[in-house]
Design a protein around this nucleic acid. Sequence first.
DNA 1: CGGGTCGTTGACCGTGATCAAGTAACGTGG
DNA 2: CCACGTTACTTGATCACGGTCAACGACCCG
Lengths: 251, 251
Amino acid sequence: MTTIENSCLVEKLSHYISLDEDSLGYLALLERDEKEYHRHSEINRPGAKTVNLFVVKKGWLYSYTDMPDGRRQIVQIHHPGDVVGFSDIAFTHSSTTLLAAEDICLCPFPKKHLDIIFQNSPQLTALLFSLAVREHAMLVDSIRAMGRMDARERLSYLFLDLMSRLRITNKTLTNTLRLPLNQTEIADCIGLTNVYVSRSLISLEEDGLISRGDGSVTILNEPAMEKLCDFQERYAKIDTSWFPQSPVVPR
Amino acid sequence: MTTIENSCLVEKLSHYISLDEDSLGYLALLERDEKEYHRHSEINRPGAKTVNLFVVKKGWLYSYTDMPDGRRQIVQIHHPGDVVGFSDIAFTHSSTTLLAAEDICLCPFPKKHLDIIFQNSPQLTALLFSLAVREHAMLVDSIRAMGRMDARERLSYLFLDLMSRLRITNKTLTNTLRLPLNQTEIADCIGLTNVYVSRSLISLEEDGLISRGDGSVTILNEPAMEKLCDFQERYAKIDTSWFPQSPVVPR
DNA sequence: CGGGTCGTTGACCGTGATCAAGTAACGTGG
DNA sequence: CCACGTTACTTGATCACGGTCAACGACCCG
């Protein structure tokens, strides 16, 4: 059972707006149950009926799609506080596989519960809408990276993107990024092979842009990396000015 | 001034659910104004404040992003009946450029008007939400194509994707696709160069998969192309079962 | 000790980029 | 009616980024 105090969803959302009592109550509804999954266990597979969304409580997971011949593309990485499954709301059946990158804990909630929010809390609806649409922007950035960046640029983009997303909830985050993904998984994120990821990482390291240690990456020269892949932070602020109802004061 | 009869947004949405009088009224609000743009004119540029969304009334347009050195990635193609600008709802400033691929007509409406819908029509809210999230699924497919497909596969994917989207509103559509994009624009869609697009198109043509005529492409062997890029239709149906309020009967 | 996962390295190759030239269609103005 | 510029597409030659395949070493855990 999740309480308001230890809800990372509340923590993530309240970074954007101050939530009223009502909204908090509805959010608690979303995080009522929880379930643990071990590393590399499948949470959802394509073709399964999509009855649940998930709030991530602990650990990283990712969604990917396969080609028939085994090529794999990791489409999104999900962190604590993320809502997973927006892309399946509109469809009866899931199209991606959801996999635990490490040992994780999720709070499942039935898609059907969304209607309670839609009917009773326009403010929270608008916020959920914004979150879904923020993911949209992240996917667009990802398309840009895959379409027009070379290997080193894509890696830089990936790291900066992960950093900036983690910084939203974790202000104390330094320049070191815990990365619970092996090089094959990294390759599947950015459309490369594990071999070339290895080579490119070494190259970035030789140029003094990053350094690596046991399961983590340290950004040594963030401005240079931002310039390398033309990175722009987008996730810190969302526009709440058009939100319905009660005066909304961003924190 | 748009009437219900000639609204392509209503046409598009009513493909998914039957709309009640209220919803129709709110939709009309979205399509009240209209504005024409000439081919290759900019509707929106990155950094501009995002006050308006647009409903596409006539013609194709696309959003793209630049790299500082001039590399360009077209991120989305928008057709009549699409709502453009979901990705910018969450942010105060736009991050992509919106460009008319041909002479077009748009219905702008202020983002602020969304709150009226959010407050008064949970059903329409859910539908808009689903539309936004359907775009999400399209972007995911696009990432898959860019990350893991070769040139011929990407082209096949692009054509099939466009076909299936256009078929939603245009049931009479045959296997011929009007394509108001030059090869440089096609290249920018799928992360190639104009030169290689030309070569790959010729290759697909030689294999009897497509044929080309003045500004259009004909799919000669759709099953083979679907197999080539593992294409799956996703846009025809959306899941309305969880929608709030009145009994919703899909047509 | 044995097996598994993971990262690194080397040799080789192919897809697709780059650069440049050539052609065709079109509209414009003289 | 032709000269001209522009845009779009094609073609050829060359090259490089990143893929493929294979081997090897480090590490972990049973």
